[in-house]
Design a protein around this nucleic acid. Structure first.
Length: 418
RNA sequence: GCACAGGUGGCCGAGCGGUUAAUGGCAGCAGACUGUAAAUCUGCCGCUCCUUGCGAGCUACGGAGGUUCGAAUCCUCCCCUGUGCACCA
């Protein structure tokens, strides 16, 4: 995600323009403007914090919305603090769930944190990022410290939080340690003396807790900037790996491109805003052109897919993903550069030498979940081998290291049978 | 702790002794259409095997037993969830 070089201390209006793009809510906009003015005057960069639970080791585009916003701050010359919530992960963020979360083990946390960093620095500039772990101060807090911290917040404040209130009213379990989560997150802001904290809109309560505590500790309360939650491929539910509607940032270029092409026309605009660096005004213009019939929605979506893919895989890879996609879907041919899967002949051998059982091949290639499903798909004429629809269950190969292009629906791979 | 109501395939939800791999909806997959999609229509939607047949076998209705020729459906015990009461002096 390299774009224009960092430009330190631009005029505040220009900084605001970039920072406000795609932001769901800023508390408060005037405070942010004020801090930027001050920073520009004194030459002191703002300290911008965002915390991450090292619980989900595979990042997807939904996570990158926030990362990209952090990157904007970096581009403007501010200091980004990438806070790994290794201690808070022991609690488990109660946000969005009506059940107590199960805590992770220390080893899992450490492992996840590493994977996390590795992926995050595909977007953030590692050299400009301060990485911290909140165990650094939370582990030292001690019993007395914890009491002191807890004394700052009342139960009714805690019950402002929707999830807690709902569970409380329903007389469901709320473990006491869960109440500590927002407290710990807020305390992080105090220790780091943050000027700004970023988070998703679902984090509002936790983010505001930082403001509360900073006031209590005699600091100027941080500005809170919330990013929207990005819908996944279905256009309805939030992007999430467990909902199966996510685009992972480590996915191959053609995979990423293809998935992006499958989002709805409507959703595309949100992706443009949140996942690309086009200015809001440019996006609005494009949207108007599409509405007026001057620009084709498909072309616009291709451009989107290409832009985002290029951000993770480079121009060349994005271009070939684009070409492959056109072959696969527009010309219904089989793409080049398909993923190859090596399969031992013994796994797919048919009754006669040189024959291959197609259902077994489909399973071995990961195109079908089970032999029974593969059978069904073949019966539905959904399977093509080397471009031809097959109806039989056996295929023959001439010689043994054989390359077979197999396609099931929109997915195709090359089997290398040896 | 007591009482009542429930626990069915990824989810919701019928079935309440036998054409049942189990109605229906959602999600998913494939085909047609299209601009990739969306919408719409059609088909599929537990697993394994092959001689792919309106084939055979296996597994499945919270768990374990039992009754029966035969159970998701009846009985017993257990586990779990919800609701009400009690407890909280």
């Amino acid at each position: 995600m390299q774009e224009s070089l960092p430009q330190k201390f631009l005029p505040v209006a220009e900084q605001m323009d970039l920072l406000q793009k795609g932001a769901a809510e800023i508390i408060r906009v005037s405070d942010l403007r004020e801090r930027l003015e001050e920073s520009r005057k004194t030459g002191r960069p703002l300290r911008v914090k965002a915390g991450f639970d090292p619980t989900a080791p595979d990042l997807h585009l939904g996570h990158t919305v926030l990362m990209r916003k952090l990157r904007h701050f970096q581009q403007l010359g501010h200091t980004v603090i990438f806070l790994i919530g290794d201690s808070t992960a022991l609690i488990g963020d109660p946000t969005g769930r009506n059940v107590t979360r199960k805590p992770l083990t220390r080893a899992e946390i450490d492992k996840n944190a590493e994977t996390y960093k590795q992926q995050v620095f595909r977007i953030l500039d590692e050299k400009l990022t301060e990485v911290r772990y909140n165990s650094e101060w939370l582990d030292k807090l001690g019993y007395a410290g914890l009491i002191g911290l807890s004394a700052k917040v009342t139960l009714s404040q805690m019950l402002d939080r929707k999830e807690f209130l709902t569970r409380f009213r329903a007389e469901q379990d709320i473990s006491l340690h869960e109440l500590l989560y927002p407290l710990a997150q807020g305390y992080d802001s105090v220790v780091l003396n943050s000027d700004v904290e970023l988070g998703g809109t679902d984090q509002k309560f936790n983010l505001l807790m930082g403001r509360e505590l900073q006031r209590d500790y005699g600091q100027k309360p941080q500005v809170v900037l919330m990013t929207p939650i990005l819908e996944g491929l279905d256009g309805v539910q939030k992007m999430s790996k467990s909902l199966g509607n996510a685009i992972g940032i480590n996915e191959p270029a053609s995979e990423m491109y293809g998935k992006l092409m499958s989002i709805s026309d409507e959703l595309m605009w949100k992706y443009w805003v949140l996942l690309t660096d086009l200015r809001q005004s440019e996006i609005d213009a494009m949207k108007a052109d599409v509405a007026a019939g001057k620009l084709h929605p498909m072309e616009t979506k291709k451009k989107l897919a290409r832009t985002i893919t290029a951000g993770f895989h480079g121009e060349a890879a994005a271009e070939s993903a684009d070409e492959n996609w056109a072959r696969m879907f527009q010309q219904k041919e089989t793409a080049e550069d398909l993923e190859e899967v090596a399969i031992p002949y013994s796994d797919v051998a048919g009754p006669e030498p040189g024959q291959i059982r197609l259902p077994k091949l489909l399973v071995a290639m990961g195109l079908a979940a089970s032999g029974a499903e593969a059978n069904r798909k073949i019966a539905e004429k959904a399977v093509r081998v080397d471009g031809e629809v097959v109806e039989g269950l056996l295929i023959s190969v001439a010689a043994l290291p054989a390359r077979i292009v197999v396609r099931l629906g929109k997915r195709a791979k090359v089997a290398v049978v040896r």
